[in-house]
Simulated assay, not measured.
Amino acid sequence: MSRPGEHIAAVQSAPVHPDVAAPTALAIEISNLKKSYGLKPVLRTIQLNLPQGQRMALLGANGAGKTTLLRILAGLSKAGSGTVCVHGLDSRYALQEIRQQVGFVAHQPYLYEELTVLENLLFFGKLYAVEHARERASVLLQRVGMERRAKDRIRALSRGQVQRVAWARALLHEPRLLLLDEPDTGLDQHGNDLVESLLVEHTARGGSMLFTTHNLDRALAWSDQIVILAGGRVVYQHESANLPLAELQQRYREVTQ
């Protein structure tokens, strides 16, 4: 039987071969994922990998399974079978740790209507053990243009304003992975510009993201990879670089009809 430390020492002393590329770290690793609601299959044997630092656009018609997939990755819904890993953490055993890694923006803002904007952020700051949560919340509210509404209750805000606060909530704990379900919902052009700048800042820090949108032009502009779901399956995957919009539009029509 080996003594404690022998294996570590052996690994540390192993020769390094510079001509052998190190494996790419994955932000998302999905294998044979299936999910059904009752007798209705929603996801059927999904295989999907997202390298760290990359951006993936998830496209598909309504009911294709996009939101279900995001909810599973965010730890809000359980997989029926298969494996889902986020930054090497298996969702079957490390769900709470995964939630610490993920920021989720969806149609539902996940905010408490009876609390003020600031109270919501402080609540989530405590939930995620964010250091100096009040200072962090103030910085984010200024960043999303909501610092003047900090003392207003969520129920008093417009849909677009609520979405801005939802972005502050999602970024509060500095997540490594952003999961975005139509992140521009309810936003005007200024809000869309804000979202785009927030995404640029996130990826510049080495963050990854998976997002859904019905805007194919925006999907190309914001992503490194395009994935299309249809009938709960991945039916198309392509790198975004040098993919013409007209070709994406044609393939989208072909696979989603």
Rank of each mutant, 00 (worst) to 15 (best):
A170I: 00
G53I: 01
L248E: 02
L33A: 10
V200L: 15
L187R: 04
L157A: 08
Q250M: 05
E239M: 06
N49C: 14
V255T: 12
D184L: 06
H173G: 00
N32I: 07
A241K: 15
W222I: 12
V86Q: 00
R251F: 04
E201I: 03
E119T: 09
L248W: 01
T212L: 05
T256W: 04
H202R: 05
G103D: 01
A129I: 11
E239R: 14
I98N: 00
K35S: 06
E196M: 14
D217G: 08
A166P: 08
T116V: 06
L76F: 15
E29K: 14
R55W: 02
L210Q: 06
L121N: 03
V105P: 05
T203D: 08
Q96A: 11
A156K: 10
G206A: 02
P15A: 03
A166W: 00
L33M: 03
A61L: 12
R253D: 13
S81R: 08
D217F: 13
H190W: 05
G80M: 11
S2E: 07
V117Y: 06
S138Q: 15
P175Q: 00
T203M: 11
Q257R: 13
E119D: 14
S77C: 10
Q47T: 10
L194F: 11
T45E: 14
L127W: 08
H173P: 05
L199H: 09
E119K: 05
T45R: 14
R153S: 11
A74Q: 00
S240W: 03
L157I: 07
A166R: 01
K35T: 10
P109T: 02
Y37D: 08
C85Q: 15
L118R: 14
D193W: 09
T24G: 05
V16R: 12
Q100T: 02
V102I: 03
S31A: 15
S158K: 03
R149E: 11
P41H: 10
L140C: 02
G75C: 09
T212V: 10
Q237S: 14
G63T: 05
V227R: 05
